[in-house]
């Protein structure tokens, strides 16, 4: 694992440069973006593993730019009322409900 300063991490032009930037701080930052709490030992383990995995991904640097014209069409249907889940069915798996609604944590 490299000691590359944080300042370089945001300007990585290639996968190889990015792979060199993974450390515990970077793992914590990404975990925060992804909203996944990690224990300290998970952070250390992931930092070590990610350096190897991203180093392997760096091989993608060698891939030439390739034309990507997909032969795709939109699949549309008439917007008609159809049968769906009942309110009771939709709420059946929720941890908490109130007056027929899902109840989530407070927003702020």
């Amino acid at each position: 694992m490299s000691e590359t300063p944080e300042s370089d991490a945001d300007t990585a032009d290639t996968a190889a440069a990015a792979a060199a930037a993974v450390d515990a701080e970077e793992v914590r930052h990404v975990a925060e973006l992804a909203r996944v709490n990690l224990a300290d030992d998970e952070v250390d383990r992931f930092a070590e593993e990610f350096a190897d995995i991203l180093d392997s991904f760096a091989a993608l640097d060698e891939v030439p730019e390739t034309e990507r014209d997909e032969d795709l069409i939109n699949v549309m249907r008439a917007d008609e009322v159809r049968e769906g889940l009942t309110q009771e069915e939709a709420l059946a798996n929720a941890a908490e409900t109130e007056d027929g609604f899902f109840k989530g944590p407070k927003v702020s």
């Binding site: 990015a18 993608l60 640097d61």
Partner: peptide, 10 residues
């Protein structure tokens, strides 16, 4: 660009 775009090229 370094990862996702390159992976789509591949």
């Amino acid at each position: 660009d370094a990862y996702y775009a390159k992976a789509q090229d591949a």
